[in-house]
């Protein structure tokens, strides 16, 4: 990890996309809260290719305030990429992420930092009194959350809350891409971080439009599958693929035994057993397939340039 000599105490990373009405209000609120903050800080706003003039407003704020850093992306790359840019640019020892839509309350920032002081690597916000529409936001979010919790080891009530606090060591190791920003706590867990949660305030959206929609369910499910793989089986992928293969082989074997019984003892003509034979083929093919994929997976992990989960043994209370 690169060492920044001029590191500061706190970075606040805010990805925004078309939030014209919200950014200056957000800035004022942040300033209010941070004026009580004794150490150095920076606010990093990543403009994810807004087309509604958000950037001009950000620019005018940044010219007056050197702590306010603005990064403009060339087009809309999505929230994960925007967050990744913010992380990469941040210099703070602690990093807070939040949405640019004023639904998170900057007043919670000192509380999150306190919680971080208790020795956790990640503190995730929990919108206990969520001010969103029930049907399209809260229920899907609740289901997704339960799924994420059961698939990954992360026991949180609200993994989707944007207001989170991280230690720099965690952020330096997390690699965000694709649409993985929804799974930040799980990604942090892959790296071996200790995670807790804290109730935060939540306000209804006043300006602008929400950028979430329901059609992403499938993608979320798929991402969850791969996260499960990363969390549980990254060190020895052959175990995952191999056990699937063994399952397929087992079924194939059972079917073989059954065929032998039917043909040998009950004297069924073999032609009538075609269905079973087809199934045996099916499961053998699938089994071999997964077995060899598992071997390739081992190679992939070996040649990859990262090691997992070894950093945080020494962390916690320092």
């Amino acid at each position: 990890m690169k060492k920044n000599s001029n590191s500061i105490a706190l970075s606040i990373v805010i990805p925004v996309y078309n939030e014209r009405e919200n950014v200056s209000r957000l800035y004022e609120k942040l300033k209010d809260v941070l004026s009580h903050f004794r150490n150095s800080y920076e606010i990093i706003v990543v403009d994810d290719g807004s087309q509604d003039g958000t950037f001009e407003i950000l620019k005018s704020i940044a010219q007056k305030d050197p702590c306010f850093r603005v990064i403009r992306l060339r087009r809309n790359f999505g929230q994960s990429a925007a967050m990744a840019v913010g992380f990469r640019m941040s210099r703070g020892e602690k990093i807070i992420t939040m949405d640019g839509d004023l639904q998170n309350d900057p007043e919670d920032i000192p509380l999150l930092l306190q919680k971080l002081e208790e020795g956790y690597d990640v503190v995730s916000g929990w919108r206990k009194n969520r001010k969103d529409k029930m049907l399209v936001r809260k229920i899907p979010s609740w289901i997704a959350n339960r799924l994420i919790c059961s698939v990954t080891d992360v026991r949180l009530h609200d993994t989707g809350c944007a207001l989170k606090a991280f230690r720099k060591e965690v952020v330096d190791r997390i690699r965000l891409y694709g649409e993985l920003h929804r799974f930040l706590p799980a990604l942090a867990r892959v790296e071996g971080a200790s995670i807790t949660e804290m109730v935060v305030r939540h306000h209804p959206r006043r300006f602008g439009r929400s950028k979430y929609n329901l059609t992403r369910t499938f993608k979320v499910l798929m991402d969850m599958t791969s996260l499960y793989l990363f969390l549980k089986h990254l060190r020895n992928p052959l175990r995952f693929f191999g056990s699937m293969a063994m399952g397929f082989f087992g079924i194939a074997m059972l079917l073989c035994v059954w065929i032998a019984y039917l043909a040998g003892i009950r004297h069924f003509p073999l032609l009538d057993l075609n269905v079973l034979v087809t199934l045996v083929f099916l499961f053998f093919v699938a089994g071999f397939q997964w077995m060899f994929i598992g071997i390739v997976a081992t190679l992939v992990v070996r040649t990859g340039n990262r090691e997992w989960g070894i950093l945080f043994q020494r962390m916690g209370h320092e």
């Binding site: 950000l58 620019k59 940044a62 010219q63 305030d65 050197p66 702590c67 306010f68 850093r69 603005v70 990064i71 403009r72 992306l73 060339r74 087009r75 790359f77 990429a81 925007a82 990744a84 840019v85 640019m89 690699r175 891409y177 694709g178 791969s226 793989l229 990363f230 990254l234 992928p237 997976a297 992939v300 992990v301 040649t303 990859g304 340039n305 990262r306």
Partner: peptide
Amino acid sequence: EMIIFTHADTVKEYNIEEIINE
């Protein structure tokens, strides 16, 4: 997925147009 994840250090999917107060 595993290939992308294990090589995520080299994944750069964004392009910065401008930085103010770098």
